[in-house]
Every structure is written in structure tokens, then in C-alpha cells.
Amino acid sequence: MLIKISDFLKTDAIFMDIKAREKLDAIKELVDKMVANKCVEDGKEFMKALAKRENLESTGIGDGIAIPHARTNAVQNLVLAFARSPDGVDFSAIDGKPSHLIFLIASPEGKKSEYIMALAKLSRLLRKEPVREQLKAASSPTEILDIIKKNEE
């Protein structure tokens, strides 16, 4: 099964500036925005699943990136969202640095392989420093999506 991040990430789930500085606040802000844009229906259950996961691991993978994720039936399909934090969010990253690029991934309980593949694709994409720099410098959701499309193989 081939997964493309750009097939699942929509411009109405890309948020250029979030304000929260703590990880659960940042995830909540992102979830609220997703609910407002009708990307997710059950925001409360969605938040609960993401928060549960955050308590058991650090989703801050270093280099200024965090990928909060969960499998939950609060979503019906694979859902992706992106948020950028100018000040950085403390995701207890392994390198101790704040996260400026936050990608959120969720899938229904039954779609495990799709979920794992999406996480793997995204992690590999974000390991490339030029991609991270372009995402930091982008000025609009359309530009963010174009960068991802261009760099996906």
C-alpha cells in the first residue's frame, strides 16, 4: 500500500501560527481548530486519545519536530494536520529543543497499517533538513502542501 502525506493533508488542516507553549495546550489548540474547520467531529474523544498517548511517550522527535498521533475511533479515516509554532512548544523532545513544526496524525483503530505507514513516511520526510527549513519559511497553507508534495517520493 502506498501512502502519500499530501493525499491526506488538506489546506484547511494547516495552521500557520499556534500560540500555546505546552504540548497538551498546543494539541488542544490544534484539535479545536480542526473541529472548527470540520476536519474532526468528536473533538473531545480525539483529544482524549492524543493526550493518553502523550503520557506514554515523547512525540517530540527532535530537530524542532513533534508528531502527536493516536489510533482512535473518534476519526473515520486517516487524518493529518499541521501547525507551526513561532515560539516553539515543549514536547519533551529527545534533544531537549522546542518543537516548531507539529504534525498530527490519527486513524481509526482498524487502520493500523495505513497509520504506521503514514507515520513512517512523515518521519522520513522530516528527517531532511532542507524540508524542515522550507516548512519553517513557508508563508501559507498552500505553500506548506506544495513543499510536502514536491519532496515526497
Binding site: I116, M117, L119, A120, K121, S123, R124, R127
Partner: peptide, 11 residues
């Protein structure tokens, strides 16, 4: 190998 690696990590 890198893609397999990430998949195994997340699995």
C-alpha cells in the same frame, strides 16, 4: 531501509 526502520519503530 529507512522507511522500513520507521515502520518498525512505530509498530
Amino acid at each position: 531501509v529507512e522507511e522500513t526502520g520507521w515502520q518498525l519503530l512505530y509498530l
